[in-house]
Simulated scan of single mutants.
Amino acid sequence: MTHTDITRALNDLLFTPGLDLSEAIDRHFTPDYRQRTNGVWSDRADFTQHMTRLRSLVRSGRIEVHEELRDGPKYADRHTVTISLHNGRTSRTEVYLFAQLAPDGRFQRVEETTLLVEGHADDRDLGLIK
């Protein structure tokens, strides 16, 4: 398997609605995947619930990677996600991400901090919505 990265993962998870969510998650995340977003830990089931909810809200979007580093199983990046929601709002969130990759190249653990750069204050918690 090719090593994943945040662009491939988010494009499959959020911006390719025809792709089955379970397939997208299996493609980029290990069965024991864990994620901490703004201090809140989630397991893979929580992450799947989060992605299901986000998919129901997001009409379209794009990701811009500003910096990306890989050192063996360590992965880090700073990226901005711009999303348009079905309710007509648009938001931009900057994300600082540090990750551990499994030997097969998928994300095993992600720890991230998000910062709403532009958009409605209610969109500040999109990274945690379920």
Rank of each mutant, 00 (worst) to 15 (best):
P17I: 08
L126C: 04
L13Y: 08
G72T: 06
G127Y: 05
L54W: 01
E112S: 14
S60G: 12
S91N: 14
L115F: 13
I63W: 04
A9I: 02
E111M: 13
A99T: 00
E112Y: 07
A24M: 01
V40C: 01
F29P: 01
D46Q: 04
G88S: 02
R109A: 09
D122W: 07
D123S: 00
R89G: 12
Q100F: 11
L97N: 13
T37V: 12
V81W: 10
A102S: 03
L85T: 03
F15D: 05
R27Q: 06
L97E: 13
L69W: 15
E64F: 01
Y33S: 12
L54G: 08
V117W: 01
L13V: 12
D43L: 06
L85R: 04
A45Y: 05
H3S: 14
D71H: 11
R34Q: 08
N11E: 15
I25C: 04
D5T: 04
T52C: 03
H79F: 09
R8I: 11
P73V: 03
E111W: 05
D46P: 07
S60K: 08
S42P: 13
D20K: 00
G72V: 07
Y75M: 01
R55C: 00
T30C: 03
H3K: 12
D46N: 02
G61H: 02
T4L: 00
E67C: 15
F107V: 11
G119R: 05
M51T: 05
V58G: 05
T93V: 13
Q35P: 12
R89S: 15
I129G: 01
R109K: 09
G105D: 00
T80N: 01
E68C: 14
L115Y: 10
E64N: 10
D32N: 08
V117D: 04
R109H: 09
Y96M: 13
